[in-house]
Design a protein around this nucleic acid. Sequence first.
DNA 1: AAAGGTATCAACCGCAGCAGT
DNA 2: TACTGCTGCGGTTGATACCTT
Length: 197
Amino acid sequence: MSHTKNEREDGMLSKNRKELPLIDDGDYAILIDYVKKHGEGNWNAVQKHSGLFRCGKSCRLRWANHLRPNLKKGAFTREEEHLIIELHAKMGNKWARMAANLPGRTDNEIKNYWNTRIKRRQRAGLPLYPPEVCLQALKESHRTSAVSGGDKGTHDILQNNTYEIPDVIFDSLKAKNYLMMILLLSRMSTVDVFFTL
DNA sequence: AAAGGTATCAACCGCAGCAGT
DNA sequence: TACTGCTGCGGTTGATACCTT
């Protein structure tokens, strides 16, 4: 049995995948057509019956992230960002569950957004969650721990939500940030301030 | 203009859970 | 009960675009 250099046994592409498109435009049409006729799910059957050279996994991913109707494209709105932060505070890294609360958005999009956001804020030495969300999570954590012994997600929030500004840049940077924060706080809610930093 | 760093996006990989046998 | 196949999820990686120096 032989495979092309980009294709593995299961039909997924391996490392140098960008040299070949995963599915070309014709394949998009086949996939859309198949799902219209037979509905979502049963992805391995898509490959068998439609003639696509992609495994079920690839088809499902492509459908979910690009072909599904009502997909929203473009940057997250401020409202969506608020919601993601709130949901992450409650659920942790449950991207699919979060996506269910954001119509038109995919788990992959939310995951990508969160990961780049984390990197940015960690580099800047900023907390991951605004104070209001922390407080809310803390309240819920107390409430749920009283009933069920608690939830790991909310503990993480409180642990991860620390400022870690290196001593070298502490004075200038922190002083500047706090000054800015005080100025902003006089006009905005803490959540709005959070998004500007 | 070039080089290096960072952000974003798309897709792969491995695993867990579930259903069917 | 054990096994198998399928599906979905979350982590991770690689390519590319964009930004900064």
